[in-house]
Design a binder for these strands. Sequence first.
DNA 1: CTGAAAGCGCTTACAG
DNA 2: CTGAAAGCGCTTACAG
Lengths: 337, 337
Amino acid sequence: MTQRADKPATLADVARRAGTSTAVVSYVINNGPRPVAAATRERVLAAAAELGYRPNRIARALRSRTTGVVGLVLADASNPYFGALARHIEQALERRDRLTLIGNAGYSADRQRHLIDRFLAAQVDGLVIVSADEGRDEADRPETMNVPAVYVHHGPVGGHAPVVAADNDAAVREAVAHLREHGHEHITFLAGPDDAGPVGLRRAAWQTAVAGGAEAVLLRCDYSRAAADALIRRLAAEGALPRALITATDEQAIGVLSGAWACGFPAPDGIAVISLDGTPDSAHTAPALTATRQPLRAMAEQAVDLLLGQASRTLTARAPLVIRRSCGCGWQSGPGA
Amino acid sequence: MTQRADKPATLADVARRAGTSTAVVSYVINNGPRPVAAATRERVLAAAAELGYRPNRIARALRSRTTGVVGLVLADASNPYFGALARHIEQALERRDRLTLIGNAGYSADRQRHLIDRFLAAQVDGLVIVSADEGRDEADRPETMNVPAVYVHHGPVGGHAPVVAADNDAAVREAVAHLREHGHEHITFLAGPDDAGPVGLRRAAWQTAVAGGAEAVLLRCDYSRAAADALIRRLAAEGALPRALITATDEQAIGVLSGAWACGFPAPDGIAVISLDGTPDSAHTAPALTATRQPLRAMAEQAVDLLLGQASRTLTARAPLVIRRSCGCGWQSGPGA
DNA sequence: CTGAAAGCGCTTACAG
DNA sequence: CTGAAAGCGCTTACAG
């Protein structure tokens, strides 16, 4: 059936073959905006099928000023947390028949701004921004440009764009409570290099949760496994290894686990660890990581609905604590076992 | 300087302001294909700057039939190996002023085909395919469609498109040799569920490398951490845990490490492990994973050069063995220490 | 319900 | 070196 032509068939080819006008062909291909007689419709559909007609999205975009493409700005796709988020966002977009343009900003505000400019030049219908650090003013430019934007994971301080993120406060409270059930009084927190982004929120939530309890130590390091690994080794060497630690991110937790193991203080006996960024794969560390499970798919769905105007309310999703072994829980038993 | 207009400036606006034709403006914006007098050029540049002119890539694409967009088909962006590859490919493309459309095929040939169709409809200038399993014939369609394609990590059996991959044979030989230096005679291999993709090549290379030695056991499981973890637990329960194991992928190695730890046979004493997919983060497992380091950035650069016609030869890059602890090596010492 | 035609913003022969 | 104009493949008032 499909034509063996060198050139792909155009709307005009279909119209000619169906003996009608390009307007009518457009109406049936797009189911509107004008009605078409059933008989005509059949002829058009048949002609399109015979010619193997595929609409040229570029031409459509030029005329209708909507591309069906959304730009996704990411800090770093090789971080599994962002990678998983990217996958869910791409799939949510795909379900709504949109294409995803991706860019890695690499934790740099300059690169992020540059990527957004390129996406804007490509006429994206919207922007999904997964930023790790503080969004500067430039992150707000998209609104200015009349392109809808939504932030996932974290948004800029004074921005107008919606922000989709999990409930950091509840997650931190739950982690602190769980470590207390294990009998820990000193619950240390491992934050990022500064209080930027959601990690700042988590740090604050921890501060509040441990207030009134025993003295609480705040640790900081970069978000890489390597940095956390090195920090733990240093602390162990100084005899200052915490007994119970909540890490802001999975990557840090993984570094803590490997560092502690290397120093002879493996978790959970040497150090009890809970992470706040749980991706599915955090189950396969040694020992298995107890972590807050970020509802990535729900976040992606909501972000995309918001972006495409199919939802209006921003609801912060619950991030439940998934209890595994790094906190000190036994195989099947609860705290204290 | 930038105009406060609601509508972005067009080529025609710039031409009007510079008192020239759109053709001339196009020539200066694109540095060709016709020469322009220096004075005219200055006027055009000034006008463009004053109006904050940004070329409309959609219009350009419709006219010139080249979009500056490349489609990247990936098995799964939440797998850190693919995520890292995706990041390098996007950045290589960005350096050459191309945009990257991304899609997750989720290990499904149907979804991969569907994604390629969508990318083709969006008029991509090329396709980068990072396929995990056997590429079926449909993976070859791109050539038919006159869109250049390049496979990274693995290509279909009888395809014409170039394939960029690391040297699996050499990597496997090196891993086997290293475990032998540690005194292991029985070197087990953990492959995927079947011999599809590069893993099949690695399996074959292992077969060859161990031929003539002691009896060699082949294991298989899915590519997830969970599957490898479960396999190891089962083997341990049966008393059939191998003493030395090469895993086809990092994800499997991580699952092996966590499973072995959970069973009381932690690596490297309980089981010596080497992985063949080393990403930078494999350094932060417990114990640190000895692995073949895939030259991801070099692979991405080469793939993109090949795609854009800036390179013609496919050279398989060396994937050196990075010795850490899971093979049994000590802190600073070599094999046997 | 249908058709002829304008126009989206560019690029590029073609003619000066 | 420069300009007037056609045309890329669509969508969509507008007029029948």
